[in-house]
Design a protein around this nucleic acid. Structure first.
Lengths: 208, 208
DNA sequence: CCAGTCAGTGAACACTCGTACTCCGAACGG
DNA sequence: CCGTTCGGAGTACGAGTGTTCACTGACTGG
């Protein structure tokens, strides 16, 4: 049988699909999804406009796929970072470092997320919101298993998880705007912000 | 003399300029600036495309004007809210209430800011960043005059001011996404987040 | 009163856009 | 082996885009 188990055809289809995603991500560095044209993407990918429809119904659908590509692989990372040992200061530094490393490695993906989080394309905005909510829940869950969280209500844990996630997003945006040379300063401020939140967490149950 | 002191001509010019801004803001409710067409705006305002150039060079320039309109009048408001007396819990509630009131009164303006803060139009993004930086500085200044801030470095005050401003922006976005019926819940969470930050502030100098 | 300014018009330019067709040729499965 | 499937090419259409140009007519200031 000359047919490979995966199928030459499907493999090639996935390749051009990825080419479309890559081309779109490249173009989205300097514009937002709502102004991205279908033809523009296919032109950059070296295809004809009609070929686009074989892979995505809309430009919006391509956007949703990009959200998956950007954030889908990041789940579980939360647990890993928080599971490692060390005092709170060390873990704090490590968290910010992980963010900075990922943003430095995949700037285009994070720029896309930051840009479209409140952008004009509904399905994409909803997809991002869903992913970030999952992150917040994962953080809340991880925090809940720590001894410092004794006596915390589930609602407050989710509040704190959301707080951490929102600051993660803000930090990525700041890193992207600052560029490589401004990274150190952004990291410094992000660490201090995170420390302040952590201090607030430590004294949360002291107050009314 | 039939000429009024202000000038009929200039008055009318400002009127149509405002009509362009209003029309644009209306259209921007469901799309982002980078996909907003010049013709689209003039059509909604009841003008010909060419008339646009009498008021703005670009759609981007119109966007910058919208930023001024949305955020320009909010300066000083920071000082007012923080200057009022009351314990920290009262002032915290009042701050969130002020935000909710403004967002409820001018949703389109805040939606625009939230959408374009990280949008694809450089001059607009820079204009928003500049305004938000001013806010952060104002908050830092106001906080610095409080007795609780004794011993705080200027850098830390700016960090805290930025933290408050970023959470203000996050809260406005959340309010817009939640809609009127979800407002109460968003306000509840925003208050608790703010309280946690305030607790962190109170114990900031205890640590390292 | 009158020449000059200028906000707004209307037509025309050269594009780009999304989508619908038909058609080709290689990979597929029985 | 042979009929079918299907990713992609090519063409064409109507609609919408930003920008330029000459022009009009009401306001302006001396």
């Amino acid at each position: 049988m000359s047919h490979t188990s995966v199928g030459v055809r499907q493999t090639q289809k996935l390749r051009t699909r990825q080419a479309l995603l890559d081309a779109a991500l490249l173009l989205l560095e300097h514009q937002s999804l709502s102004s991205l044209g279908l033809r523009e993407v296919t032109r950059a990918a070296g295809l004809t406009p009609t070929a686009f429809y074989r892979h995505f119904e809309d430009v919006a659908a391509l956007g949703v796929a990009l959200v998956e590509e950007a954030l889908g692989s990041l789940h579980g990372l939360v647990g890993e970072v928080l599971a490692e040992t060390g005092d709170s200061e060390e873990r704090l530094d490590r968290s910010v470092a992980v963010i900075a490393r990922h943003v430095g490695a995949q700037p285009a993906h994070f720029r896309f997320i930051s840009r479209e989080q409140h952008g004009g394309v509904d399905p994409v905005r909803e997809a991002i919101a869903a992913q970030l909510l999952r992150f917040a829940q994962e953080v809340a869950c991880a925090l809940g298993q720590e001894p410092q969280s004794a006596g915390w209500s589930e609602e407050d844990l989710l509040m704190l998880g959301g707080l951490y996630v929102d600051h993660m997003v803000i930090t990525t945006s700041a890193l992207l705007e600052a560029g490589p040379q401004g990274e150190a300063e952004v990291v410094r401020v992000a660490r201090r912000r995170l420390r302040l939140v952590t201090i607030g967490r430590a004294h949360w149950l002291d107050e009314g």
